[in-house]
């Protein structure tokens, strides 16, 4: 059964397990997951499940629905995806799927104007522009990165300290080819090829990790952000 973990300020406030095919998320009591906060619309979003997939559908909400910090109208969910609604984060557990449906209408939901929300909206737009400029997924240089943006159009992109890799990383204690990013259709995997513990996704050492939009990849001392293309 799929589980939705509801967080507020990084604190788990509710664990929601369901056998339903469709659950609604919103401010009023007739929703399956009730989020009592003014930044949440009355009928904010739907999550639909079928055999092995899940989809979140924004219900034309005022403040929007974000999946892994990207604003979405409808988005396929994967394990551990984070859905941001108002000040809440919903973490999706186990894979499921479905199709859209709607009610709507303005319902007195307040416009969220917190700094965090503004930053998230602005950042999301910026990252979308970058991705659409390249027409594919992109690595953004973050800490200690020797570049700003690298496109991930190849099937295999190598990362390391060797001169011939596609993506150079900084740091001495790592292998020449420390890691690779493998593309399979539009799904990307980060694979460790070198010293154990020197290839990390979101701060955790990994051997093979399916990349999600916004994941932070650290190789040696360099950190990159993975932006999923369409």
């Amino acid at each position: 059964m799929p589980e939705i973990i509801v967080k507020y300020d990084d604190k788990v406030v509710e664990r929601f397990v369901t056998e339903k095919k469709r659950i609604s998320v919103g401010r009023t009591n007739d929703n399956d997951i009730v989020l009592e906060n003014r930044g949440v619309s009355r009928k904010h979003a739907l999550i639909e499940f079928n055999d092995n997939a899940a989809v979140v559908i924004d219900n034309e909400s005022l403040n929007g629905t974000f999946v892994n910090n990207r604003k979405v109208t409808e988005e396929l969910l994967r394990q551990n995806d984070s859905i941001t609604i108002g000040k809440y984060t919903l973490i999706f557990k186990t894979e499921q799927d479905a199709d859209p449906d709607d009610p709507s209408g303005f319902d007195g939901t307040m416009v969220l104007n917190t700094k965090k929300h503004r930053d998230m909206v602005a950042n999301d737009q910026l990252e979308r522009q970058i991705v659409s400029r390249y027409g594919c997924s992109v690595l953004l240089g973050m800490e200690n990165a020797p570049f700003e943006e690298v496109e991930l159009e190849r099937e295999v992109t190598t990362i390391g300290k060797a001169k011939f890799v596609h993506v150079p990383a900084r740091g001495f204690w790592m292998s020449g080819i420390q890691a690779k990013i493998v593309r399979e259709d539009n799904t990307y995997f980060l694979v460790n090829l070198g010293k154990p513990g020197k290839t990390m996704a979101n701060g955790e050492p990994v051997d093979r990790h399916e990349l999600k939009n916004g994941d932070l990849i650290t190789v040696g001392k360099s950190t990159f952000k993975f932006l999923q293309g369409h």
Partner: peptide
């Protein structure tokens, strides 16, 4: 703890919120 008409009580960890009127 929240009790809406017709449903069993719901429980959440304490956090900032705005009570719904019919609850």
């Amino acid at each position: 703890f929240a009790e809406s008409p017709g449903g069993p009580p719901r429980e959440k960890v304490g956090h900032d919120f705005v009570p719904n009127e019919d609850t």
